[in-house]
Amino acid sequence: MSAADLAGRPGLLARLTPGPAVRRLLRNRAFVAGLLLFGTVAILALLAPWISPTDPNRMAVRFRFREPSWDFPFGTDNLGRNMVSRVLWGGRLSLEIGLWVVMLNAVFGVVLGAAAGYFRRLDGPLMRIADALMAFPAVLLAIGIAAALGPSVATVVIALSVVYVPRTARVLRASVMVVREQDYVQAARAAGAGDGRILFRHILPNCMAPLIVQLSFVFAYAILSEAVLSFLGLGAAPTTPSWGILIAEGRSYIREAAWLTVVPGVAIATTVLGLNLLGDGLRDVLDPRLKVDA
């Protein structure tokens, strides 16, 4: 594929999202509900530096363990830190980790899945490795990797990527194998097109729907798993509040100050529910046959 060939084409986005699909999406209730839930959370987290009332780590011993009230809608923790700020900032970190995992899945899941689905010789070895990784319970594998690498944000991202990339690669491999047999792929080969052109021009653009659906689920599971890892002390450094860390910190006071665990818990639940609804809606509209089991 030459550079001249790449220039002057309709934009990639225009090619991936045809008009009718978007309109059908907006008529899908699950998608719209998911978009509203997740969109609200994402916007609030994004705006955290401007809308949070205080620094998330600012302590005020006078205001320890305040119940939710007009002044402190989500209460305060054992050091008097405002939970509104902490949840907003925690959302930033949780979503950031989720986004990293999604991006790594998009890159490695697509590369490995396309390689396995398109080149028959790579299929066996790659899928056996994927089988081995998928034989571990997802969270257990993540715990093992995170424990081995030591707690940090990068550790969490790597651990969760190792867990979810094989699953994404599987989904992509399956759709590549279907599209590979289409007549238009044969036609391209008959015209003399090479593997690169066939993959990037014919196969991958027609595998986008299941990939997008899969990535929306990976996002949800990544946020959930990040909370689990943080709760177990394998997540980011405790001074950086992610939702999982907030729950872990609040655990000690769960009888006296339940809001410390309930509020971040509800935030996680809302986000994951939103993303799952979003994914369900995407699946119904883009790819009704696909059932994802991440």
Partner: peptide, 28 residues
């Protein structure tokens, strides 16, 4: 060259007709 049986599977749904018909020229 080849002409296929199924007129629905033979054309890449993501491409315009122009991109489809000139593809052999692009490749060649």
């Amino acid at each position: 060259q080849i002409v296929f049986q199924d007129p629905y599977g033979a054309l890449n749904p993501r491409m315009t007709v122009e991109e489809i018909v000139v593809e052999p020229l692009v490749v060649q």
